[in-house]
Every structure is written in C-alpha cells, then in structure tokens.
Design a protein around this nucleic acid. Structure first.
Lengths: 193, 193
DNA sequence: ACCTGAACACCGTTCAAGT
DNA sequence: ACCTGAACACCGTTCAAGT
C-alpha cells in the first residue's frame, strides 16, 4: 500500500495522491486506509522516508570530507528529483516536523568528517537540508511548468534569461559550494591550523 | 479584500484562509472573489508580496556589505515570522514560481555590495532565499506545535535537546554566517586581493 | 485484524444570469 | 463593473457495524 502510494505519486503527481484515489487503486473503501495510517500526513511522511532511503549511498572511502558532503548532497538532491513531486512531498513532511530525518542525518554524517563540534555539525546539516529541498522543489516546479506551458511559452529552451540567475544543477552546485566554503572558514577560525 | 485576507491569515491561520471563509467575511458569495483574482494561488501570491513588503527596509548607510546582507536577511526573516503562517504562505508562492520576488531582489541588492558578478549575486541570493524561507517555515511550525502541544509535551521550555541542533535565531544566524563566509571566499578566489 | 457503508463537514471553481 | 445562485466535482475523516 505504501508502494501503491509511491506509484500514484510518480505516475500522476501529488495532487492525485488522495486518500480516495489511493483507496480506489487498492480496491478498498477510503476509510480502510485509516486502519493503516492515522491520517494523510502520516502516509506522506512514510512516502518521504521511502524517497530519501532510495538515494544512492555515499562512497564512504574516497575523497576528503568536502567531497563527501558534496556527493551526499547531490545524491539526496537527485533522489528528490527522481520521483514526480518528490521534493514537494519531502518538503511538506520536513516542514511539519514529521519524519524525513534521514536527510539531515546523512548530511550530518558527511559533515562530521570535517571535525566540527556537534552543534555546528547539526546546524550546518540543517542549513543544507533547507537549501537542498527548497532548491529541488523549485527546480521540479519549473520543469513541470515548462513541460506543460510549452504551448503558451514557446521559449522552453531559452530559460535562464540573464536578468535572473540560472537555477538548474549549476545553481545547486554553487549553493553547496558556498556552504562548504563557509564551513571551512569556520573550522579555521575555531582551530586556526 | 487583500486586507481581509491578511487578517484571516494572521488571526486564524492558513487552513482557515479559504475562498469561502473569506467571502463570508466580506459578506459576499464565494464566486464574487473570482472577479478580483483568477484563482486562490493568485490571492496567496498577493498576500505574500504584502508580507514581504512589510519587512523593515535596510539601513543602507551603515556597515560593509556583509552586515547589510545579514541585516536584510534578518529583516525579511522577521517579516515572515510576524504573520501567522507567513512563512508557509510565502514558501508556497515561492515554490510555485509566482511572485515573492521581493525577497530575492532585496537580498541581491545587499549582496551586490560585495562586488560579485551578476550571476554569482543572483545565485547567492537564491540560495539565501531558500534557506531563509525554509528556516522561518520550520521555526514557525515548531512554535505552533509547542503552543498547542503544551498539553502532551510538558517540556515546552527544554527544547533544543543536545542530540539535535538548536533551531531558533541562533541556527538562522549560523546559516547566514556560513553563506556570507562562503561568498567572501568566492570573492577572494575570483580576484585575489 | 481488517474492512464496509454511510455520513459529516467541508473544499475550489465555473457560469449563466442579474443589476 | 461587480455580484448572485446554483451547481460540479471533488476532499479528509469518523464511526458504527460487519467478518
């Protein structure tokens, strides 16, 4: 039934992931779902955890902590983009404070390779989570708008007008780089080698 | 009517800001609202812009660009927190790509004081916007959960357990500091003084 | 343990028609 | 220009009752 929810999400999108639609798919009454999940948010939290868990694991052996952090962030970012509306689902779950903790934990583990104290590590991880999810959400929304608005727009390929910033993978990389560089500075200030 | 929408938002919260409820408040049929706004998202976008515009303007005279950026970020952050569910409304508008551009513009103006090229400025502003809004949303959600869950929790004051990171103003400051420090590094790499 | 049936209390949006 | 009335096509959730 979690699997069915993920299928609806990926094939039809979040607006169609309703309790009633899911019930129909399962050949069951809507009320039956409430034996398995207390409410819809709990369902979405479970879906979110599934999406995050699907992110390819970090190659823990290679590179210094900076690369590990960058790779882990990229892997999680990709996982959110892999499911239709994946970023939005995770974003809502995260904001409501239910689940989706895997995101912060995985980033924190990578960051802790830099030898920061626990508090800095946690704060930095949280900062990166918010940027990562926000960016994925934003990007996913634009991709969908483009694919639907190919009618009206007629400029589907000349996005990234020079007035606004480009917002694809390049923007994501810069954000992560900024944060990693900032962390690096912090570490030098704390224990100036 | 925008004013009425803002009042409902601030006094009752986003879940109660429905077209039907707003119409009742105005003594009008729900369908009447559709003469003024094409749909609910457009209404929420207008509300978002109002919230952002209410942020105290930056003191453009004092400090270097780093301080200006920090102050501007803090002012915008505070504005989102000033209205009940303000962060959530702005977050959704932002994600859908309607309005809320004031956020990025104001930050970009402050950042541009650092003399970065337009692309870096825009990307950095976007990064900060995502962090800023995500953090405000997260924080607002927790405050509300605390004020409602004072019943079940009984630990309303000993939040910030040492396992997780603290997530109040302190966390916000660190995130912004990290980003500013990262930007600083970028500028030294581009034109090593 | 797991599900049905039926209801409750809502939503956003459209559209002809009125003034 | 601005609004009404009435409908369309939905929601999430509860709860007694069934098996």
């Amino acid at each position: 039934m979690l699997a069915a929810a993920l299928r609806i999400l990926d094939e039809q999108g979040l607006p169609d992931l309703t309790m009633r639609h899911l019930a129909t798919t399962l050949g069951v009454q809507p009320s039956a779902l409430y034996w398995h999940f207390p409410n819809k948010q709990a369902l979405l939290a479970a879906v979110s955890d599934q999406i995050i868990a699907s992110a390819r694991p970090a190659d823990t052996a290679t590179g210094d902590w900076r690369d590990r952090v960058r790779h882990e962030a990229a892997a999680l970012h990709d996982a959110l983009l892999a499911y239709k509306d994946g970023a939005e689902v995770v974003s809502s779950t995260l904001a409501l404070g239910l689940g989706a903790d895997g995101l912060a934990h995985r980033l924190a583990r990578a960051i802790s390779g830099g030898g920061f104290d626990q508090q800095t590590t946690g704060l930095a991880a949280e900062t990166m989570v918010l940027f990562l999810v926000g960016h994925a959400f934003h990007q996913q929304q634009r991709l969908q708008a483009d694919s639907l608005g190919a009618v009206a727009g007629a400029h589907s390929l000349d996005r990234d007008d020079p007035a606004g910033p480009p917002s694809g993978p390049q923007a994501f990389d810069l954000g992560i780089t900024l944060l990693v560089a900032g962390l690096d500075t912090q570490s030098r200030m704390a224990r100036p080698a």
